[in-house]
Design a protein around this nucleic acid. Sequence first.
DNA 1: TATAAAATTGTAATGATTACAAATTTAGAA
DNA 2: TTCTAAATTTGTAATCATTACAATTTTATA
Lengths: 133, 133
Amino acid sequence: MDFINHLTSNNIKPSLQRLRIFEYLYNSAEHPTVDTIYSDLVSAIPTLSKTTVYNTLKLFIDNGITSTLTIEENEVRYDAIMEEHAHFKCDTCGHIYDVEIDISTLKFKKIKSFKVETTNIYLNGKCNKCLTN
Amino acid sequence: MDFINHLTSNNIKPSLQRLRIFEYLYNSAEHPTVDTIYSDLVSAIPTLSKTTVYNTLKLFIDNGITSTLTIEENEVRYDAIMEEHAHFKCDTCGHIYDVEIDISTLKFKKIKSFKVETTNIYLNGKCNKCLTN
DNA sequence: TATAAAATTGTAATGATTACAAATTTAGAA
DNA sequence: TTCTAAATTTGTAATCATTACAATTTTATA
């Protein structure tokens, strides 16, 4: 993934902060919170401000290269993988896993009165690691 | 629906506050927030406290007769209908509609490493009313 | 009626997010 | 290069939902 080109082609000027935040988000399997993003990047960008992280994520979302997860109340998480997938959260260890899914198989009854633009599927339960421990 | 019996059989003592909050939630199509619940009930129960609304909803959730929606960041909503269904939020008018759905048709790839306990499906888009206006 | 437990309440604390204005950086014109 | 305006970043203060917690009230029971 050419990050500079990805930002540029989505009308986002690739500043250092934006690049690092997007790279971090894209490479993170953990769907980090704002706080995690800030904490992990502030050593590389000592002047980084948490406000910038908020602003930047909002910019990403407005330009369609990032989406939010609200799988659990009280913690918004972010995701730079825009392909269709579901999210599984293990209620024991708290990890969030991506789950491949074929949304087209979803059978709605009476869905015709809505124009569905986005679909989010959230699963909760226990992951294999926690089940076998 | 016999509300007193519903609470009692779920190990919840049916105090006035609990009854009114559950009735309100069960009859509301709007999946209200804590604030809405409080505002709409405080005239009927003048001594009602917002803390009681929080405590009561937590009790309902712990006892499995209410669930939470987090379809949009920053607003937790509550639902007393525990049957399997998806939620559609119209991004224009903000209304949340229940959508009947057959979750069993969902085809996951590689889901075997998880024990899925709950599934939440959130749809966003535009409702028919907003589309035709 | 007396007492203990349960439920409700109000206030203060917490913590994430936003508003906003100041400071810094960047891009383009002269 | 230098200057200027626009864009970006930053820090502080404000907001708002939620939680902690202790006090009060209500309920159940001896």
